[in-house]
Design a protein around this nucleic acid. Sequence first.
DNA 1: AATACAACTGACTAGACAGTCAGCCTGACT
DNA 2: AGTCAGGCTGACTGTCTAGTCAGTTGTATT
Lengths: 191, 191
Amino acid sequence: MSKKDEILEIATFLFANKGFKETSMVEVAKRSGVASATIFYHFKTKEDLFLSVLNNVKNGILEEFSHYFSEKTFSNGAERLEASVAFYLYLAGTRQPWFLLLHRYYPYKLAEKNDFCRTLLEAIYNCFVDIFENALVRGQKDGSVGDISPRKTALVILSTVDGIVRFKNCNLYDAGALYNELMGLVGRMVK
Amino acid sequence: MSKKDEILEIATFLFANKGFKETSMVEVAKRSGVASATIFYHFKTKEDLFLSVLNNVKNGILEEFSHYFSEKTFSNGAERLEASVAFYLYLAGTRQPWFLLLHRYYPYKLAEKNDFCRTLLEAIYNCFVDIFENALVRGQKDGSVGDISPRKTALVILSTVDGIVRFKNCNLYDAGALYNELMGLVGRMVK
DNA sequence: AATACAACTGACTAGACAGTCAGCCTGACT
DNA sequence: AGTCAGGCTGACTGTCTAGTCAGTTGTATT
């Protein structure tokens, strides 16, 4: 693993767990086992490092979902929707730093003045919404989903699962305990 | 308005919009029109100032909800639930700083090592969940709500509306455009 | 008028921070 | 053997930060 990749991995962890401002370049350097000047050799500024991290997160998310759906088949749209929700929750568990990062306010603040950041966030959230919308549209065709607006419903479903993941990551409520309830409610929502 | 209250008001705005670390005591002082030493006369540390802000937010939220429900009546539980969701969204609009603050990660991180912070957050979220749960329980008694777990369903509903508010505050999607859809979906969820 | 006390402040400090820069090391090519 | 370049570093800087403290003001009580 190159030193650049090591820096990126450590930075992902720290930005996710401590936030942008709370993470110091000296700490990233120490944990990566490099001199702090090395970070500035690979990344122009701290903001640049953050954008590289976010870009990796985006690529990771897109890859995970395309991989999952490329080797799975579903008997109908409703089933596909349920599997999508389940996979989102699964991913939030196995890739917690990604979701911690996305649940911080900094990236959205940065997106206001940085177009690249905005395109990254849009790619991520479009990926999420598209997956639910796709399942709903298929469900309407095969009759397993009722007459609702697929896009808007997909947004509400994303809000729900994303909210649950956030609550879990904030140690407020446990996502696992809500799993069955959530599936039932989502199913009834789109019937 | 006393200088102490002025400091609290400015601090609420800045902690909500910039976060804990990004907000400097000098800026709070300048905007409040006091010397920075004055802040430390009223509040022992920066963390202490933050906790005072959060305490105010908690009191504000509890007050707003108790006031709203004390002068409203509903013909059944389902209607009460719908009104609760609507009022949550309304409050998130009129008291945006409160919700920006609650959507930051810092308070939850602080809660891990600070019991007072934890009790404040618990009071806030219990208030939210109780309101939805209360409506669901009433609805089950009058038959307007189906056979579901009121507590868990309340948690899912809170996740949904809280998620939508967060998306709106992050400039990702507009809560207003989703209002009708949301109400329909929540209604169907609990039938 | 003297006392007492709370509210407030200007001037300060020690530490942390992002970012810079001149130069070192190592391996590849000539 | 000499040259070159990419990767890397130690030592540094100017700026910003939370927090301190000795001392001033205003006001109420005696």
